[in-house]
Simulated assay, not measured.
Amino acid sequence: MDISNLIDLIPGLPSDLGLECLTRLPHAAHRVALQVCSQWHRLLQSEDFYKHRKKFGHTRKVTCLLQARQEQPLQGKPASLPSPYGISIFDPDTMTWDWVLPVPDYPFGLPMFSQLASCDGNLVLMGGWDPTTYQPLSALFVYDFRTSLWRRGKDMLDKRSFFALGSGLGRVYVAGGHDENKNALSSAWAYDPSSDEWAGLAQMARERDECEGVVIGDEFWVVSGYGTERQGLFDGSAEVLDIGSGKWREVNGCWEEGGCPRSCVGVGKDGKLVNFRGLDPRLKAGLCGVLVGSRVLLSGSDYDGAPHGFYLVDMEEGQHRKLRRISVPHCFSGFVQSGCCVEI
């Protein structure tokens, strides 16, 4: 679609000014804008429009969180099911919150312990446990922010839980975790949302259950974890995949020995690993951190059962950085399981 040839986007304005006005339209208004006319609908859903917004700096980085919904019970939801989880969106620039539309296959909430990654402006949701049977799931779904629609992707090629997940260079990377028999895994896969295809990767040197993943540049880091025979004894090393060559290397001493990395691994401005638990030692329970631009959204509490708080930390402030508590609407104040940053 050649967006430079569009005319009469906004009656009374030259075409280039009309395009610039729509380029600056906040994403939260796109659902309504899609219904204005067929030309706006085609424009807002086009890949060229996304690239145009990105080129001129009008995309936004937001956090998407797997979060317990603090709302009235969903109509028709069986009483035996646990409190539902949904995907919330927080924009740290406007300090606004919203919900991503529910996955049609999960009308009463997302599977327990499912995981999120972002890839080229899309959300990829995979895995988790069936809330009724507690059996691991292999289903995968992709949410397109341009269309505000979910689509079913190709299932994961095996059932695994508590795996490392990261995204970069147009693909989503999966490694480690454990299988249906609680055996820790060393295998790894890559998923391409554009082609809806999985590709095998070389195995890691060791098993890594409950590891955490992050992409730094052109490397996929699988941080900590433990083997089948070392339940809960978290390792201080990481294995790093060179995405270009497909080869792994091991990095020792990059993580706190015995420290769980789940939802706590980030990247500092120097490109090195950051343990979000170290940003404030008072946050000891239910900690989750998501790096969004130069800031981190932290959620957690002082102890189990304490009120859940939300904080923003500016990583550019170096050693003088402080946690700034933010006010959150009640319906978005629930426990955060994990999250990711999305550029939309």
Rank of each mutant, 00 (worst) to 15 (best):
S80Q: 09
F145N: 02
L157Q: 15
G236M: 10
P111S: 08
P11C: 07
S114K: 01
V328Y: 09
E250L: 12
K54Q: 12
S187I: 14
R249V: 09
L157D: 10
S88M: 00
G76E: 13
V222S: 01
L149D: 08
R249G: 03
E219M: 10
M126C: 15
C37G: 03
M204W: 11
G57N: 03
Y191E: 01
C341M: 14
G213L: 08
E210R: 13
D8A: 08
M204F: 12
M204P: 05
I87H: 04
F276Y: 13
F56I: 10
L279I: 15
C21V: 14
V36Y: 05
D196T: 05
M315H: 06
C119F: 01
P136I: 01
V336Q: 03
D209E: 13
F56Q: 04
R262W: 15
E210I: 12
P104M: 04
S195F: 10
W150A: 07
R208I: 04
L137M: 14
R230D: 15
E343L: 02
L165F: 03
E256Q: 13
P193R: 06
T132M: 09
S245R: 11
F113Q: 12
F49T: 02
D48L: 07
N181S: 10
V62C: 05
S15A: 15
D192K: 03
L13W: 06
L201N: 07
H320A: 10
R53S: 01
A184S: 13
G121A: 08
G12R: 05
D209L: 03
L6K: 02
G153Q: 05
L273T: 08
I7H: 09
L125I: 11
C264H: 11
V103R: 04
S263I: 00
A68Y: 14
R146F: 04
G244F: 03
E317T: 03
S118V: 00
D8H: 08
C119H: 01
L157I: 15
A202H: 12
L137N: 05
G86I: 08
V36A: 12
L19I: 08
H308Y: 15
P131I: 04
A205W: 07
R69S: 12
P261T: 05
C331W: 01
D235I: 13
S186F: 10
H41S: 11
R249F: 04
G246W: 08
L201S: 03
E180R: 10
I10D: 01
E47G: 11
K55Y: 09
D98V: 01
I243L: 07
Q39G: 04
L123C: 00
L17Q: 12
S88R: 00
